[in-house]
Structure formats: C-alpha cells, structure tokens
Nucleic acid binder design. Structure first.
Lengths: 225, 225
DNA sequence: ACAGTGAATAATGCATACACTTTGCGATGT
DNA sequence: ACATCGCAAAGTGTATGCATTATTCACTGT
C-alpha cells in the first residue's frame, strides 16, 4: 500500500456499461421515439462498437423497462400508456409516503436543515421562473425524503421509476396556476417534515401526487408517451 | 384470422430468456453460494449454450440485483448483508401499506371474498402445520393485497423484491410462538381488509413487518446471506 | 385492382475466434 | 526465508461470421 491516498483508480469502464448509459440517455432525451425499433447494426456503427456489447446494453435496458424486447424482432423503445404513467407516479408517491414515516423517525437535524435549504432554493427558482432549475431541485427534494429513510432498496426503486419517467416529465406543462399550487404544497411538505409530522406529510404527499397526475394528463392529452 | 381459437402459438423462446430463468432458479435454489463467482465457460458448457446468450442472461440478472457485475472479473452471486435484507422487507412493507390504501378503495367484493377464502386455507395449513403450503399461501395473500391496488408498477416492484428475498426466506425459522403471532396478525389483516379499514390495515402491516424482521434475524444469526 | 405467393434482402440469434486482463505460481535475487 | 518479478494459464471483453427468422416487394393469378 505505497500509493498516496490522493491517487484514485483510473476510470477503466467496460464498453458494455458505457454503451448502456449512452443508449439510455439517447432514449430519455428523445433521440429515439416511443415505439421506434433499435437497429443493432446501424446503432453499433454509429456508436463505434460491435453488436456484442450493444446487445448486452439492450438486454440491460430491457430489464430496466425502458426497452421492450421482442423475440426475433429486436428491441423497441417502450411506449407508455397514460395508465402506465399514472401507475408510476402513484408508485413513486407510495414510496415517498412510506419513506416519509421512516424519515420522520430517522432524519438527523442536519438533514432536515439541508432539506429546508434546498426548499428555499427551489422557492427562489420559482420566483424567478427558472423552470429547469426548479424542476431539478424539485426532483432532488423528493429524493432527499427517500434518502432520509436510510433504505437502499427503496432508494434504488425510487430512482429506477424516476428514470423511466424522465422522458415524460419534460413534457410541456405550463399552467401557472398549477405550478403555484405545487409550490404551495411543497411549502406544506417542508413544514410538516420540519415538525416530523408524519400524518400531515403523508396526506400532503398524496395530494401532491394527484396534482402531478392532473398536470401530466393535461399536458400529454392523448399523445403517445 | 382463419385459425381456430383452440390453436395456440408454438412456444418459441429465445435461448437468452430460457437461460435467464434457468440461471435465476439455480441461484435462488442455492446451487450457487452467495459470493460465488460465475464461470462463463464452464456454466455455458453445463447448460449447453455458448457464452453469448449466457452473458446476456448474466447482464439481465445483474440488472435485477441478483448478480453483482465486476468489470474484468465477471459476475458473482450477490451476498446480502442483514441490513440489505431488512431494507428489502421494509420496502415490501411500504409497498404493501401503500397498496392497502388503494386496495381498500378499489377492491371488488369478489376480490375480498377471494382473499378471505385464501386466508382460511392458510389457517388450515397452519393448523395442520404444513409449513411449505402455509408459506406459499402467505406469500400469495401479500401479493393479493398488492394486486387489488391495480397498479402494474407496484406489482412489478413487489415481485422483484420478493424474488430477491426468495433465497433468504427459506431459512430455518421454527419458533412456534413466532408462527402463532404471525397467524394472529394475519387474522387481523383479513378482518381489517374486509372492513376496508385502511388505518387498521396499515398498522397491522407495520407490526407484521417487524415480526418478519425479528424472525429473519433470529434464524439467520450472523450467517452470510 | 387486389389478395396471395415466393424469392431476395435485411435483421436478429447464436457460436466462435481473438485480444486483453487477471491470477496463480515458480524462479530469482537479496 | 521472504518479497518481487515475470511468465503461463485461465477468464472476461469484444469483434466477427454463420444460421435462422422477419420483412420487403415484385410477380402471378383471379
């Protein structure tokens, strides 16, 4: 053990993992449309890799639920129905509610402070109408509640579902009134969490879920997701 | 559509999916010990397939969290710490509690009847001390609550976690007193569900989770999982 | 015109071959 | 005796080639 502690391992990833994240990003960013078929040969050439690591990446994304794998017909980008999306949002909410209870028990004062701080930052982003920044902080806050529960499984599941929804959530949604309501709910969430009031927290989170579903329904409006 | 409805498609699976379930079963049934490394060449020969579909299966199981994939060193069967297992049980409980609320709203009378019927069957299995049968019905009952919520995402997640736990749950656990307590709790679960009493249901499910954790802790007792 | 057929084309599924990395072990020198 | 080095064996990572299955499209017959 002669190496100084400042030296860290060189990043030597496998092609497989690299291709997996590249492809995941391509899909999430809408480079492939929902329902579109993935051509292994062409995509392999575009990415500059052979079909082998690409196929492994496709299997991984299939298992993540981002791609649908059809025997002898390859992979297509999964198209979500409105019900699918509603289910995912509901599932996120269920997890967050469960984590809220655990968080009220387990969160340290420092963590609660951190949450309030991020919450204030989000309010600032709202006041200056910085949509993207607001959006990111919003996601972060929900993630913080989950992380306070100190449960690896719940964190992983929460992130998985959020990843699938990423493509959807970027949809339009520009009703100022709805946005204002969402912010108001976040204020209540922050307050309940500070007081470690689980029941209040759970009920706001449920309302928040309903609002999110309403928002998505409006902005999607029959489109294929 | 000229085919008669009695004709069904010939089952023409891909090797990849076949190998995936075979390997998953092998791991769950303990054919590979936790921490054990998977030798691609040897396993491929044993299963009678080349490394290509086997590697794809390994990627899939890695994404499922059953295998850990180490770059340039292949795959090892994931060894769970006690904390990991506790997290998974807690996560199952969070999902079941959330589903319980939805189930109380959405379950049809016929579904509630089905639940009671299975519950009685489980009691019978308890009285005759048929462990395996009891165990299966127990799992089924928990799954039923989740299915009543009519949420594909929550169902999928619940099943995923249960699959990971399968290996663990078969562990010893033979304290008659604990078993009796579990049955008593199930009686209360059945009663609350029949009355669509969400709060009662949630609190019993939380207690049930604590009992399960206690049970696993006792029977595992420091062993590697 | 149009439904149906069949061959050519293209794409996926699987196996194999080669390259690179890790690992085990013995030789070497101190 | 012990640590180090280096080499051979084993194993994983990637590319490529062949087999099989879908898809396309021109052709045929009604």
């Amino acid at each position: 053990m002669s190496a100084s502690p400042t030296i860290e391992k060189v990043a030597r990833q496998t092609l497989h993992s690299e291709v997996t994240s590249r492809l995941r990003d391509l899909i999430v960013q809408g480079h492939f449309a929902p329902g579109e078929r993935i051509n292994e040969v062409r995509l392999g050439q575009d990415l500059g890799v052979s079909r082998t690591p690409l196929r492994e990446a496709i299997r991984t994304l299939g298992s993540e639920g981002i791609l649908a794998l059809v025997p002898n017909r390859g992979a297509v980008v999964r198209a979500f129905s409105m019900q699918d999306v509603v289910d995912m949002i509901e599932a996120l909410s269920v997890i967050e509610q469960g984590c809220a209870l655990l968080a009220c028990e387990k969160a340290t004062p420092a963590e609660l402070d951190l949450f309030q701080q991020r919450h204030l930052a989000m309010l600032a982003a709202y006041r200056s109408r910085e949509r993207l920044h607001y959006f990111q902080l919003n996601q972060q806050l929900h993630g913080l509640i989950v992380s306070f529960a100190r449960n690896q499984t719940l964190m992983a599941v929460h992130e998985d579902i959020q990843a699938k929804l990423k493509r959807i959530r970027f949809l339009g949604n520009d009703d100022p009134a709805v946005w204002a309501r969402a912010v108001a709910e976040h204020n209540r969430i922050a307050a309940f969490l500070q007081r470690r009031d689980y029941d209040g927290l759970a009920s706001v989170l449920r309302a928040h879920k309903d609002l999110t579903i309403e928002r998505i329904r409006k902005s999607a409006d029959g489109r294929v997701l």
